[in-house]
Design a protein around this nucleic acid. Structure first.
Length: 245
RNA sequence: GCGACCUUUA
């Protein structure tokens, strides 16, 4: 059954859905029942293909087969809805999960915060964050980063940057993603001086810029046509020898 | 064996 799941995952991620589905049928005839993970990997692969409704149908099928969607199933679905900016659907899945008796963990909360943030619903993102804390679930860097993105997307770079203080108080170390998200927030507002200040702090903090860091800086300089800075950044990027993570 | 965050739904 795990062998089939692995194969299905490989085909589905390669966009060969017909083959993946074929294997799903084959499993049954072989008496190797698809389990929750089998469905999860399939559902996950359908998102990037823009086949979210098919993913929903698979969840229905799981239920019909008597399989309980797991917390991963819900977070995968919520992630896809979030990427489609369907925050209401993400929230609905979140509620369905709780109705099924599953208590959300930090990943699920993070996914919901992200879904709200992508849709520009920063107030809802904040609310969920507070709910998470009241439920006794501690935030981690990914969750704080999601909040930062929510502010950045809604043009509130100062609030995005202020999250650093909140993380510090919570004893959560920023990550490269944290810095990249704040850089992006300033880039969006064309505030390149602020962006540079954040970048300097990042380096002082011994963080290594990754490809996304450089691309974000380039985006910021591009916004204001700072050709000289663009040029310097391209040079530094080449010197740094970055590779995609 | 599967789940959340950054440039980039291009």
């Amino acid at each position: 059954s795990r062998t089939y799941t692995g194969l299905i995952s490989a085909f589905a991620k390669a966009g060969k859905f017909d083959r993946a589905y074929g294997l799903l049928k084959e499993m049954r005839t072989q008496g190797a029942a698809p389990d929750t993970v089998t469905y999860n990997v399939l559902i996950d692969s359908l998102g990037p293909a823009g086949r979210t409704s098919e993913a929903e149908a698979l969840v229905e099928e799981m239920l019909r087969q008597g399989l309980q969607p797991s917390m991963s199933t819900y977070s995968i679905l919520m992630k896809h809805f979030g990427r489609e900016k369907q925050w209401d659907k993400a929230e609905e899945a979140f509620q369905n999960m709780q109705r099924a008796g599953i208590r959300p963990d930090v990943v699920v909360y993070g996914t919901l915060i992200d879904a709200f943030g992508r849709a520009g619903e920063w107030g809802r993102a904040e609310h969920v964050f507070e709910d998470m804390l009241s439920s006794g679930v501690d935030g981690n860097a990914a969750v704080f980063n999601g909040l930062i993105m929510a502010y950045g997307k809604s043009r509130q770079a100062d609030k995005a940057k202020a999250i650093l203080q909140r993380m510090n108080r919570a004893g959560i170390a920023p990550t490269v993603v944290t810095y990249n998200s704040i850089l992006d927030a300033f880039a969006r507002e064309k505030r390149v001086e602020d962006m540079e200040a954040v970048f300097r702090n990042m380096l002082l903090g011994e963080y290594s810029p990754n490809l996304i860091t450089w691309n974000t800086l380039l985006k910021g300089y591009g916004e204001v046509q700072r050709m000289k800075s663009l040029d310097e950044t391209l040079r530094k990027m080449a010197l740094s020898g970055v590779e995609p993570d």
